[in-house]
Design a protein around this nucleic acid. Structure first.
Lengths: 189, 189
DNA sequence: AGGCTCATGTAACCGGTTACATGATTAT
DNA sequence: ATAATCATGTAACCGGTTACATGAGCCT
């Protein structure tokens, strides 16, 4: 459902092709809403059928032809309604198969779970670096946008930052606890 | 996919009925893997067909009859394999429709997005309180488990705590920025 | 009689993923 | 030639949600 509104949100800034949308998702929304290109094209068709967007084929000589979509009045209303609904209860809950593995961590040897946490930590650090490259794309998109528009993008970037930072610190604490525990059992043996 | 392993994980502690599993999910895993009872029963049937678990009907006089499931050797191996695979790349990424709304926050009036963030904050606070009630259930489950088993549960509880705390602090900063911005534009008018 | 907990499902749907398929144009 | 970017899709599948349905036994 949300992908549809993500698309509407981008098209609300201006007309775009499916390819443009794929790129837009990759460079920004991707951090908290990863979208497959196939899914985007599928959703575009659905949105067009609903009358939320309208597509127009643009013939290009230097590149393959493309279909540029624009948001309709109906689409705008649907998007605004979605925004006005506010954050549901689902905002606080998040799913994580990783945490489920940690939850059942007692079933594997401590060094195995510690290794998992170490890998998680390095993944987080890599993710942080990847995210720090994002401000560039935000600048690009933001060049001709209102300041307060950019502010919201920064909010989400900041969220990502804090979240990953929290993950790293938590992982460090867990690893340390596991290591001290491991040291103790080694002494006992 | 993960629900199946969640069930296997619980059954690895000991035999349980579908109803028991529903309750187990509700009191612990629910924080990062919410499961519908209908889905659990569906998954139980699939797991039984796969030979990962085996069910036995238990006739009860004081209550309705139930079907108690036990994990099989094949099931244990599948569960252990899953654990051994470690945390995939997906561990770092998480989806949030809420953050998508924030991302498109520039399309609504600042007081509307501020309101959304305020609501998010109070939801987080309510969530924290709800989570602080969880240690009770963990104690119950943990009474006859190894200490290091309980430690992993605490890891996940701690993660939830940190995560929500980070959310609250982030929301506060966002709200403040929006409020000062609102104050400025009011002065300009 | 009415409400609660215990207990187990079915059916329809849908959002999203995976894998696959195609082809134009540009740059090297 | 061939790799890269631009560009757009289809088909099968699946994990999960929503809504609905049922019924036993206990407590008040």
């Amino acid at each position: 459902m949300s992908l549809a509104f993500g698309i509407l949100g981008f098209l609300n800034y201006g007309p775009m092709s499916g390819y443009d949308l794929v790129k837009s998702f990759e460079s920004s929304l991707q951090f908290f809403w990863h979208a497959q290109s196939s899914h985007i094209y599928l959703e575009l068709k659905k949105l067009e059928n609903k009358g939320y967007i309208s597509g127009e084929t643009v013939i290009q000589s230097d590149r393959p032809n493309k279909k540029v979509f624009s948001i309709t009045e109906t689409g705008k209303r649907a998007f605004m309604d979605w925004l006005a609904q506010g954050a549901g209860e689902d905002a606080t809950q998040f799913k994580s198969a990783f945490l489920m593995k940690i939850f059942f961590g007692g079933n594997m040897p401590p060094d195995q779970s510690a290794e998992m946490l170490r890998r998680f930590k390095t993944d987080c650090e890599a993710y942080l670096e990847k995210m720090d490259a994002a401000p560039e794309s935000i600048k690009y998109y933001g060049s001709n946008k209102e300041i307060y528009q950019i502010m919201y993008w920064q909010f989400t970037v900041e969220f990502g930052h804090c979240f990953i930072q929290t993950c790293i610190e938590w992982a460090e604490r867990c690893i340390q606890k596991l290591e001290t525990l491991n040291g103790q059992t080694e002494k006992e043996e």
